[in-house]
Write a protein that binds this DNA or RNA. Structure first.
Lengths: 342, 342
DNA sequence: CCTAGGCTTGAGAGCGCTTCCATCCCGTAC
DNA sequence: GTACGGGATGGAAGCGCTCTCAAGCCTAGG
């Protein structure tokens, strides 16, 4: 085992230069080729890495970013949306050799905010902004900590964020149902109070209004869950619908069960569409027409946005709207239009 | 907005004491009641929190622990075992107000190890040790960083770890199958090369040997996945078995499909048991007999073990073997013993 | 009354790094 | 030959905190 070099001074002594020069080599300052080569050699031989705390104290930068997804870990880990997001984030952050500190909904938003802000260790933070009223997001934005939102509220127009256009996408998929001749198109909403939920309602209403079809009695509240889909579908079927647009794919999965339970066929009697295109959407029977949003890509893009922010301090906010795609499968345009069973 | 206090010195000036005294108040040193009250008041009024980097540099402690689960985030987030583990960990860590840095399998084990060790920022690290040959775990144990393993290899006897007795549990569930009269009991193993996989084989063999039943031709390799369960079950059914012990619940789920596909009944023709008791085990049809191990509890216990280690530096290793429980459901002792269909 | 000992407090020396500034050296221009 | 400019380097001042040490004060015992 080589002699353990623990400080810049030791490394400097070993290379025959000053501490300042070693620091320049490590951080890419201006150093002559010859000196750089000599120091680099020692650097690699000793596997020396500068002390992160000292570095942070002296420079004000830590190379660590915070990721905040304030919802119950229980919910988070079983929701493909959040796990995909995390996956995209961890990949992009690891790629930039950035450290990641993670905060989930284990403590209150106030405690979490307090811990993050006052630690003064993070270079920046990425936070999911899925709820309309969220003191954690507000607090982060009000602070001087560079912050990137995943999703955004109306009030966040001036913030940096990565998002998709939920209104437009919901309009597109509703229009798809209109295009294939459906008229009484019900909507089981996402969780009320969430940005995505409300925006998808807006997009749905926009498309319905354009085609002149009243939709007042065709909306029931959901919660982004299969259970809410089961219940919402029963309600809508009672009111008589020939299509259902669900707030997300999990909701559609639940709705499918209720439709089946009444011996109705999909899409013969009722066309069914979801939102998100999570893994199981294509594996449902029939496969689900839905809106694909690259969730993992959103995570990666958020990481990139934060790095951009850190590199261009004082620059304006960095906003990214990622594209969505209508994925048509057999739950809306199945080849076999099964009739009502006897 | 109150005047922003950024350093201990400012806070000290505001309270009319020295920086050292403020530090004592914050860190629980010996201070007179009166002084403590005065400083505490200012502390709360200004919402001052010490700079984490400076604190770490001066004291050598950061209040941040690393969590390392080196497998593809894709696999991790869809495996209830790891997500439950993470859930238990985040809860326990948040409870202790400890920060958490997370490393997943985004980069190579060598790169990850390098980053963790040389950052010299973490107080300690918790790492899943599920693979027999794992340079990352070896590297962490060889370092001076306090380390707690989740799971352990034979070579890790002297390390601190949290684990369950996989051998004993596998023996118990195999014995259960023997007790209900099964004789040709097949085993679809977990992923070979993993500690859990190999230990469960050992427990299975131990129980079979005790009852004097040869088991040489009753073992097929699995991989902790439903796909490997489907395949393994077909293989075992060809060889003729009246029970199958699967390496985990996901494997059992797959096996169930293959048994059904041959129009055989569970448990009538083949008794089926799994391991882990993840969420869906009780929801299978029939509900699955399995071994319950409190995975979330393992995560929490690992966090506690690490804190114990940090509080008692220089003390011996801290080892915890958590209990497991045989959960008998209808996949092994169903009320209805359906016969072979026509 | 003097001294020993305990408790509280402040001074100050780092922790290991970054970064400003001064210095030095060399090449070029005059 | 002298003056000047620019790149490379070292010196040293912090970054904000912890923690040792010594000083100061007070009480109690002899």
């Amino acid at each position: 085992m080589a002699f353990l070099v623990r400080t810049l001074d030791e490394l400097a002594a070993l290379s025959g230069v000053s501490r300042a020069t070693v620091s320049r080599v490590i951080n890419g300052g201006s150093v002559s080729e010859e000196t750089r080569a000599r120091v680099t050699e020692v650097l690699e031989r000793t596997k020396f890495r500068p002390n992160a705390a000292a570095r942070t104290l002296a420079s004000g930068r830590s190379g660590i970013v915070g990721v905040v997804m304030h919802l119950s870990p229980h919910l988070l880990f079983q929701d493909p949306y959040f796990t995909s997001l995390l996956q995209g984030l961890t990949d992009a952050l690891a790629h930039q050799a950035a450290g990641m500190m993670l905060w989930l909904g284990n403590r209150s938003k106030e405690e979490t905010l307090d811990q993050i802000l006052w630690m003064r260790l993070l270079d920046g933070v990425i936070v999911t902004a899925d709820t309309l009223d969220d003191p954690l997001v507000d607090g982060l934005l009000a602070s001087d900590l560079p912050t990137v939102l995943i999703g955004h509220r109306r009030a966040d127009r001036d913030a940096s964020y990565v998002d998709v256009d939920n209104v437009a996408a919901a309009d597109v998929i509703t229009t798809h149902l209109l295009d294939i001749g459906r008229r009484r198109i019900g909507h089981i909403t996402g969780r009320r109070g969430t940005v995505a939920g409300e925006d998808r309602i807006a997009g749905y209403l926009q498309a319905m209004a354009r085609s002149g079809i009243p939709a007042d009695d065709l909306i029931v509240d959901g919660a982004f869950t299969a259970a809410s889909g089961r219940e919402g579908a029963r309600e809508l079927l009672d009111r008589g619908v020939d299509a259902i647009f669900c707030g997300n794919d999990a909701t559609a999965e639940g709705a499918l069960e209720s439709i089946r339970a009444r011996n109705l066929s999909v899409p013969g009697d009722v066309a069914l569409v979801g939102f998100d295109d999570v893994g199981f959407a294509a594996r449902l029977d029939p496969p689900l027409t839905t809106i694909r949003q690259g969730v993992q890509e959103q995570g990666a893009e958020a990481a990139r946005a934060l790095f951009h922010l850190l590199r261009h301090r004082g620059g304006g906010p960095h906003r990214v709207i990622l594209p969505t795609e209508l994925v048509i499968r057999r739950s809306s345009v199945g080849e076999t239009k099964g009739g009502r069973p006897p």
